[in-house]
Design a protein around this nucleic acid. Structure first.
Lengths: 345, 345
DNA sequence: CTGTTAGCGCGTTCAA
DNA sequence: TTGAACGCGCTAACAG
C-alpha cells in the first residue's frame, strides 16, 4: 500500500498506450479536440486504476495561474464570514476556482500572509480581516506584485486594489440620534480592544466606527465620557464581562452602542443578569448583521447592511479583475449601512 | 506601474551578475553554502529592486513539497476553531509551513476539497469538520494518495490516517446521571440537524454524542421521548428558537442536553425569556469548550475536554507524519471528555 | 481528424 | 560559484 511514487501523466499515457498529450486533453475534457470515445475511456480507466491526479504545482507553473482565491480573515468567530465564504465559493465554482483561507491576527502572521500571496499562492485575494496588521504598506506590496485584491474597508484609499465599502456614519448618526431623542444621555461605547486602547492612550483612533459614534454624539451636544468607552466587542465573553463591570460602576450608562453584534447580544444578557431590561433600563445597539438579532427577545437594534448579507457583487468584482488583464479603473462597491430599529432601543 | 512580467530568479541573477544557482542559495539563506557577504548583498538588493518573490509553484514542483498544511472545517462559527488554527499556525511556523483552510459543508464541496488535496495542494491535512460529507470513502481516497491526515473523530476506524479522538460517553453518562439523580425525568436532547433528522426518520444515528446520550438515559431506566429530541445545535439562533418552542409545548422538559455549547448558552437565555431559570426550572448541559461557559450567569455546565483547549499535540502528530517518510503505525490521540459541573445543573 | 513530439515554465541542486 | 539537468503537466506545431 506504500506509495512508491506518485503516478504522473506519463504513467497514465503508458498504461493507456497513448501519448501524454492525449492524457492531458482527456483529463481537461477539452472540447476543441475531438477524442474518440474508446480512447477517452481507456485513458480515464488507466487514470482511475493508477490513482492519478494531476499535480497542481506543475499545472500552476505551466498555466501561470493557480485557480485559487484566498480569503484573509482576522479570526474564525465572526458571523458574517460564513456568508462571505459562501458567496466566494459559489462564484469561484463557476470559474473552476477553489477557495483557501488565511488567518491574520498579528504582525508576523500578516508578513507571512503577504509573502505567501506574493509567491502567487492564489490568483486573487479578499481581505476581510487583519487589515490593521497588514497596513497600507502591505497592501501596496500586494498591489505592486500585481495581485488582484478586494479590501473590505471604509477607510482605505483605493490605490491599486478594489474596495468594498460599507459606510456607517449615517446609520450611526441616526442610531445615536434616536437614543438621544429618547433622553439617553449616558451612552457607552463597547469597542474593540484596539480602538479603545488608542482612545485611552490619547492617540488618533483609526476606527471609522468609533469616529462615527463620537461625531454623532458631539453633533447632539453630548460628550464622550472616558468611563463609558470600554473594550469588549471582540468576543461574546469579553462583552459580557465588560458590560457587567460597566453596569456595576458608580454611574452606569443608560445606553450602549456595541461595535459588534455579538457583544451587543452579550450586553442584553449581562444587563438582565443585573436586573436591568432592554430597552427600558438600557438601550442597546449593535453593529453588523447577525441572525440572532431577529430571534432573541428583545430583538436587537443594529446598524448594519440593508437586506440580507450577500457578497455576490464582491466576488464578481474580484473575478472581473482576475479575468480582465487590463487593470482598468479601481472600483469601489458602496453599501451604506442603515439603522435597523428593533426591540432593544 | 503595469506588471509587464513577473521577475524570475534569472532576472535577479542578471541584475546581480551572478548565476541563478547563487540567487537560489541566497534567497533560501542556506548555511551549507558559503556565499561572500558582498555577493549576498548584491543579490538581495537586486531582488528588492525588482520586487522579486520566488514562484511557489516552481518551488513546489521541484521540491516535491508545498510547505503548507490544510485545515478542513465545516463552517466558520465554531469557537474551538480559533484554538485549533492557533496551534496549527504555531507549530507550522516552526517548520516554515503555512496554513490554509477549506470549508466543506456539502457533498460537492467535499468532492472539490478531496480533489484539491489529491492534487497536492498541501503536505498534510487536519480534518476538523465536514467529515459527514467526506465520508469513509473520501478519507480512503486521501489515504491512498498518501496524504498525511489527522481526523478529528470519535467514530472513524483509523485505517490510513491518524485520529484525534475525544471520547465523550463517560462524561455524558456522568452528566445524565447527575441530572437523573437530581430527579430530572424529562431530559431533552438539542441536537444537530443531521442526527435529529436521522433519529426521527428511524435511521441509524451515526452520532457518537447522541448514542452516548441515549445509552446513558437508558442506563437509568429512562426512555427517549421523540418529542424531546429536537434540532437546534448548529447555531445560536436555531438553538434559541428550538428551545423556545420546546418550552411552550404541552409537556416541556426539565433538563436539556445541548449538542453544542453555543446552543446551550441560547438555551439558558431562551428559558429565561419564558420565566424559567436554570438550574431551578431547567437544567442545562452543553457539549464542548467555550469561553462564555465561565462568564455567563449561571455558569454553564458542560461535558468537554479537561483543562484548556490546546491542540499542540495534534499539530505535532501531523508534522511527525509529514516529516517521517516511513509511515509507521497509525496513531491515535485520546483526550476523554469529562463532566464539568457548574451553575446550570 | 487523430495522435505525437518537443519544449516551455522556474526554482532547486548536483557535479564540476 | 556556476552550468545544466530535473520535476511534471500543458500545448503549439507537426505527422500520420
Amino acid at each position: 500500500m506504500t506509495q512508491a511514487r506518485r503516478p504522473t501523466s506519463r504513467d497514465v499515457a503508458a498504461a493507456a498506450e497513448v501519448s501524454v498529450a492525449t492524457v492531458s486533453y482527456v483529463m481537461n475534457g477539452r472540447t476543441d479536440r475531438r477524442i474518440p470515445e474508446v480512447t477517452r475511456d481507456r485513458v480515464l480507466a488507466a487514470a482511475e486504476e493508477l490513482g492519478y491526479a494531476p499535480d497542481r504545482a506543475a499545472r500552476m507553473l505551466r498555466r501561470r495561474s493557480t485557480e485559487q482565491i484566498c480569503l484573509v480573515i482576522g479570526s474564525f468567530g465572526v458571523p458574517v464570514l460564513d456568508q462571505l465564504a459562501a458567496s466566494l465559493h459559489e462564484t469561484g465554482d463557476r470559474h473552476g476556482f477553489g477557495l483557501i483561507t488565511m488567518v491574520v491576527n498579528s504582525p508576523p502572521s500578516a508578513r507571512r500572509a503577504i509573502e505567501r500571496l506574493r509567491e502567487r499562492i492564489a490568483d486573487g485575494v479578499v481581505i476581510a480581516g487583519g487589515l490593521h496588521h497588514i497596513g497600507a504598506d502591505g497592501l501596496q506590496e500586494l498591489a505592486r506584485a500585481g495581485m488582484p485584491a478586494v479590501v473590505l474597508s471604509n477607510a482605505m484609499p483605493a490605490d491599486g486594489f478594489d474596495v468594498y465599502c460599507e459606510p456607517e456614519s449615517e446609520a450611526m448618526a441616526e442610531a445615536v440620534g434616536h437614543l438621544w431623542s429618547s433622553d439617553r444621555r449616558r451612552i457607552a461605547y463597547l469597542g474593540h480592544e484596539r480602538e479603545v486602547a488608542q482612545y485611552h492612550a490619547g492617540l488618533q483612533v483609526d476606527s471609522d466606527r468609533f469616529a462615527a459614534f463620537a461625531t454623532a454624539l458631539e453633533g447632539h451636544g453630548g460628550r464622550l465620557d472616558a468611563d463609558l468607552v470600554v473594550a469588549g466587542a471582540d468576543s461574546r465573553a469579553e462583552g459580557y464581562r465588560a458590560v457587567s463591570a460597566l453596569l456595576s460602576a458608580p454611574r452606569p450608562p443608560d445606553a450602549i452602542v456595541a461595535a459588534s453584534s455579538r457583544s451587543a447580544v452579550s450586553t442584553i444578557w449581562a444587563a438582565r443578569d443585573q436586573g436591568l431590561n432592554a430597552p427600558h433600563d438600557l438601550a442597546v445597539v449593535g453593529a453588523g448583521a447577525i441572525p440572532e438579532a431577529l430571534v432573541i427577545r428583545p430583538t436587537l437594534s443594529t446598524i448594519g447592511p440593508p437586506g440580507d448579507s450577500d457578497f455576490t457583487d464582491l466576488a464578481t468584482m474580484l473575478f472581473d479583475r482576475i479575468t480582465a488583464r487590463d487593470a482598468g479603473r479601481w472600483r469601489e462597491i458602496r453599501r451604506p449601512w442603515i439603522y435597523h430599529r428593533r426591540g432593544s432601543t
